[in-house]
Write a protein that binds this DNA or RNA. Structure first.
Lengths: 253, 253
DNA sequence: CGCTGTGTTGACAGGTCTCAATATAAGTGG
DNA sequence: CCACTTATATTGAGACCTGTCAACACAGCG
């Protein structure tokens, strides 16, 4: 029994024991993978999705000219690879940037969730919508703000994500990311990421020691980054009740 | 009975008559709105979503400094406003850029779909994942390609979307968009959009007459834009069967 | 017929990229 | 544990792309 970490889903709703058990029963055994391992590459067949238990994973797209864009940073508790469910060939390359542990789940099992646990399915739907909001915010950040603002937004985003799993943590990030990878996330070159870190430091917004980054002034940082605050709904009233008896669809007209 | 247009969902799966009827029964009456009407603004309460029957709609985010980013262009057949379902206050402003007709559906009805039509719910989940892929591709385009490539990618994207509803159409777009709006989508200024149109024209990739844009050389345009071709799955085998009897969730551990 | 919104063009400024060199850290094999 | 190799971080100079500001043409619309 794997006891999947489901922070992301649970943020919307407390799942019932039976819902959790349904999920757990479908998940494969936890598998460790080393740093740099490619979990699934662009173009690969899509027959499973993944649950990340430990470690950090990037989801990236690559261009014909060799450039790479990291579109999403996955932290423990995330489901990985779900966007590619709509494609025969995966759109994204999932790469471990630290040693990781993850579980697989087959698409056929996943599909059964919609029948066996409708309320859980609705929460998974919400998770997908939440990712859309995040991507929309990132688009806005990328195309409308300066390098320094984009970097600030990234740091704040990571801090917020980590805080989900560790509420009382200090505003200090221990990034396992190279400046090149940070550039791939923010749409900058590694060289300019370096200059931009210095700039944020000079502005007094962050402190640095190696790859440790301290968020020195969260409030000013937030204002500077121009990130809209997103408050996720909790336990929305319109969700179907947990044990809800399935209702037959109405007859065709 | 409104007979919702569902091209986007139907691309994944042919819905059964009863599934269509379930949806149709929940949709409110078609409502016309004039050009420039704000369907829902950022910050508004989120208690409905929308189905677009006719016309074009933008979904935009705005920044503190007044800049605006259009994150999504909605065409007839689209569901609007679903990302904001995870928020108490809408993230996106939905604006009609042509006269439109649309239906509303309450969130409580929408939530019932997960219980009453599990396979339909799964398709709606796929639609959300598809939007994620589109946003990921847009992020890559915005942060990794030149102004001319971004504009080319936008034109190709619109052409492809229109082709869904009108398979045999000529590669000619009649854009109801101002250059400023195109700039808001591509992350450029209106001035630079203008220059970039001229550039694409000089390259022989497009022709122009007013707001009509002809895609003169689709193949070269695609290669130039560096857009990955996305082939959506059709009728995925892992979807629950249509009439699938609900299975009780397994007992808690 | 004047007004407002939109399209077009030019000159200039500024932010980010490219190329290059060096320093430092991390990893590897002896 | 050291020597060597490779990856990563840092800094500088110059080029390029796109933004800014400004002016004007043109169209739609009251």
């Amino acid at each position: 029994m794997s006891q999947l970490p489901l922070q992301r889903c649970l943020a919307f709703l407390d799942l019932s024991p039976s819902e959790r058990a349904t999920l757990d029963a479908m998940a494969g055994p936890p598998t460790p993978l080393p740093k740099r391992a490619v979990i699934r590459a662009e173009g690969d067949a899509v027959d499973t999705i993944f649950f990340l238990l430990e470690g950090w994973v990037t989801s990236s797209l690559s261009l014909p000219n060799g450039d790479r864009q990291i579109v999403k940073l996955h932290l423990p508790g995330d489901m990985l690879g779900t966007p590619s469910m709509v494609l025969a060939q995966a759109a994204e390359t999932l790469t471990a940037i630290t040693p990781v542990r993850l579980c697989r789940m087959s698409l056929s099992d996943y599909g059964q969730l919609f029948v066996r646990a409708p309320r859980l399915a609705a929460v998974l739907f919400l998770c997908a919508q939440q990712e859309r909001i995040t991507l929309m915010d990132r688009i806005t950040s990328l195309s409308r703000t300066s390098a320094a603002q984009r970097l600030a937004a990234l740091l704040l985003h990571i801090d917020e994500r980590l805080r989900l799993g560790e509420p009382g943590r200090a505003p200090m990030l221990d990034l396992p990311l190279t400046q090149e990878q940070i550039g791939d996330m923010t749409g900058l070159t590694a060289v300019h990421v370096n200059r931009t870190f210095r700039e944020l430091e000079l502005m007094g917004l962050i402190t640095r020691r190696g790859r440790q980054v301290g968020l020195a002034d969260l409030e000013r940082l937030r204002q500077f980054a121009a990130l809209p605050p997103r408050v996720w709904v909790r336990d929305p009233s319109w969700l179907p009740a947990h044990g809800a008896e399935p209702v037959p669809a109405v007859a065709a007209a």
